[in-house]
Design a protein around this nucleic acid. Structure first.
Lengths: 198, 198
DNA sequence: TCATAACCTGAAGATTCATTCAGATTATAT
DNA sequence: ATATAATCTGAATGAATCTTCAGGTTATGA
């Protein structure tokens, strides 16, 4: 068996969820590679064998968690973006939501990035998928005349790079100005809008 | 002993270097966590005990390598940037050199990023240091009237984010347009210069 | 040349960790 | 009520890996 086994009863579901919650916390604190199965089961207060009732190994558990997080982060951004009009506002809302998300759920941010060092293909799938979605909106904005005729693929990577590094900065508390997300986002947007050179 | 022991004789230096070269390759191909000491010594064709003659453990070897790479990448960029005049040209040269470096030495790029999941402080030190250097140049450009009065800390993170994600894109061969670095850099610069919105 | 320090080896012990499994408990549907 | 499936346990096995060390080789400087 190499797939995740979904429990059917109430007790089973609770244990399943307990494993996921415990693991989220441990992966965040210690990283994927430094977290052992024994580590997870002991912290969760369950028998070692119970783990294997639901997950064939640590990697499958990671993949399962990654999928959950990806859905959640995308859903959150999509929901927020849909509440505003115009590409500029949508872009701003997207970046803001992403950074807020990174601050609110540093676990997620951390675990998604770690995929690069667990299974490179997971990472590629994630960011390539993200970029492709981005491009759809960008292309529309160009058609609408809201945006210059840029290379949408490149711009989607640029925007991901910007969001991710600002997220990283805020998350790791690098530098000094981390207090006010709204303010940070405003500045980022103004730079994206008009460029930095005279 | 918890430090790296530098060899004194010619043979010693050769073995030391052999360990580093072998490890660079293995870390790149398999990642830090999937690379064992036995793995390194066998590939290098030396006895297991020889490793411990120079490095107390894998982490110290990693730190040593990371330091070497950081110096090299910074030196390379600084050298290139100093050959051109004006902040815009310097910025362009910096981004171009960074991306070229990532393509030429994917090992380095990969190993530096991995620090986030080996020892978070190493990662923080690296990028915070990089940002601080960046800021010096940016501040000067503002004084010279070449650049808008932006938040230099924020802009340095934005520029790092952009370079890193473009590097990532090219490296992982994401998307389609990866052939011509010069062309990519030109587009990136034009976006940074004038912004993306009308 | 030869004493000495540096260098090198790989088998062996120690440790950590993943995974199994026989046996026990619990929930649920009929 | 009870048969059945689902759930749970944790000691035990075994595989992978780190690290040491006693003994051997090589290079170098006096």
């Amino acid at each position: 068996m190499d797939a995740v086994k979904i429990p059917t009863t109430r007790n089973g579901k609770a244990t399943f969820q307990l494993i996921i919650d415990t693991t989220l916390d441990l992966f965040y604190k210690q990283g994927y590679h430094n977290t052992t199965i024994a580590n997870i089961t002991e912290t969760a207060g369950i028998g070692a064998g119970t783990f294997y009732l639901y997950f064939p190994n640590k990697l499958m558990l990671y993949k399962h968690i990654l999928k959950l997080l990806q859905h959640d982060i995308r859903r959150t951004i999509a929901a927020k973006v849909s509440t505003v009009e115009g590409r500029y506002n949508k872009e701003k809302e997207g970046i803001k939501t992403f950074i807020e998300y990174a601050i609110k759920y540093p676990h997620s941010y951390n675990i998604i990035w770690e995929s690069l060092y667990i299974d490179k293909n997971l990472f590629i799938e994630y960011y390539d998928g993200f970029a492709k979605r981005y491009e759809i909106g960008l292309k529309q904005s160009i058609l609408d005349g809201e945006m210059h005729d840029v290379d949408t693929e490149l711009v989607s990577y640029i925007l991901m790079g910007v969001s991710n590094f600002i997220g990283l900065k805020v998350l790791l508390n690098l530098g000094t100005n981390n207090n006010d997300v709204e303010k940070i986002v405003d500045q980022v947007m103004s730079i994206i809008k008009t460029g930095i050179f005279k």
